[in-house]
Design a binder for these strands. Structure first.
Length: 288
DNA sequence: CACGCGTGGGG
DNA sequence: TCCCCAAGCGT
């Protein structure tokens, strides 16, 4: 396996986007919040809401002092609002178990609500400079192509972390840059739809390119159909309740035009279970 | 391990 | 237009 780190580091120095969480001194809490928001939500939509979030809650303790409902409301339209509840819960855990300081150990980060393999290592590496493999979907795609010679990665698997570890230089700072560079390359150059090999710093070393871009068959899990799904129904319920801020609505009036009432009711029930909808005297409202 | 979970932008 | 995609996580 040729050395990918050296060209990646040089490329990253010249081509990395100037993103808020990469600013010197952005802080571990800011990095952690950004990572929560970036879970399945594009960068461009995260940036303005991240700034607003950190202005309102500059520390985990500040967030923990407000009710979870405040976090859900501030989450606005980022999608997957359960993440707002998880982030709030993580803030409480940081206050109660870590004296209000975002932990730097991967194991401690993994124990927080809403933090998994990716986010734990992203915080440890990008906020604290520790040396670990950080593997997201971009990184997995770049490894699939450059190293394994396949057009797309399979589903996340054990072994992903080991594969990335093999690419990391010894030096902690260089390792952090290579982690970031793999993600950045996947986001900007070696994307899911296209591979811009003409501007890729490792095209000469790429196994997929060398093999003539074989289409290995796409093993990625397909996103479930959204049209007609329970998720869509939940989205419609939330949309209706957001449109009626502060006052509760009779349950029958919420998304009343939804084509299948049973599905609408199921969506409401699941949102109540998740803590994203409240029942007050038989009326529904967003938690407050 | 495969599935459920929002919302919106771009090719 | 419509479909695909987007720094995952919990169960």
């Amino acid at each position: 396996m040729p050395d990918l780190a050296t060209p990646l580091i040089a490329w990253y120095r010249d081509n990395a986007r100037d993103l808020p969480w990469r600013a010197e001194g952005f802080g571990a809490w800011g990095v952690l919040v950004s990572e929560f928001m970036l879970q399945q939500t594009p960068v461009a939509r995260v940036i303005p809401l991240l700034e607003a979030w950190l202005t309102r809650w500059p520390t985990p303790t500040a967030l923990a002092a407000d009710p979870p409902a405040a976090a859900v409301a501030q989450w606005a339209n980022l999608g997957y609002p359960r993440r707002a509840l998880w982030l709030h819960r993580a803030a409480v855990e940081i206050r109660d178990r870590h004296d209000g300081v975002v932990p730097r150990e991967v194991e401690a980060l993994l124990a927080l609500t809403g933090i998994g393999d990716y986010t734990a290592r992203a915080v440890a590496v990008f906020a604290y400079g520790e040396r670990h493999p950080v593997v997201d979907t971009n990184t997995r795609r770049v490894i699939a192509r450059a190293v394994d010679g396949r057009s797309q990665p399979g589903p996340p698997a054990r072994g992903d972390l080991a594969a990335m570890t093999a690419l990391l230089p010894r030096d902690d700072q260089d390792a952090a840059i290579v982690n970031a560079a793999m993600m950045e390359l996947g986001a900007l150059v070696c994307t899911a739809r296209a591979a811009r090999c003409d501007v890729c710093p490792i095209s000469a070393l790429c196994a997929w390119r060398a093999a003539g871009y074989p289409d290995t068959g796409d093993l990625r899990r397909k996103q479930a159909a959204y049209e007609g799904s329970d998720r869509q129904a939940r989205g419609a319920v939330l949309h209706a309740l957001r449109a009626a801020p502060s006052h509760a609505l009779p349950a029958d009036d919420v998304a009343a035009d939804w084509p299948t009432p049973a599905q609408r009711d199921r969506a409401i029930d699941s949102l109540i279970v998740d803590g994203l909808v409240e029942v007050v005297d038989g009326n529904l409202r967003l938690p407050q």
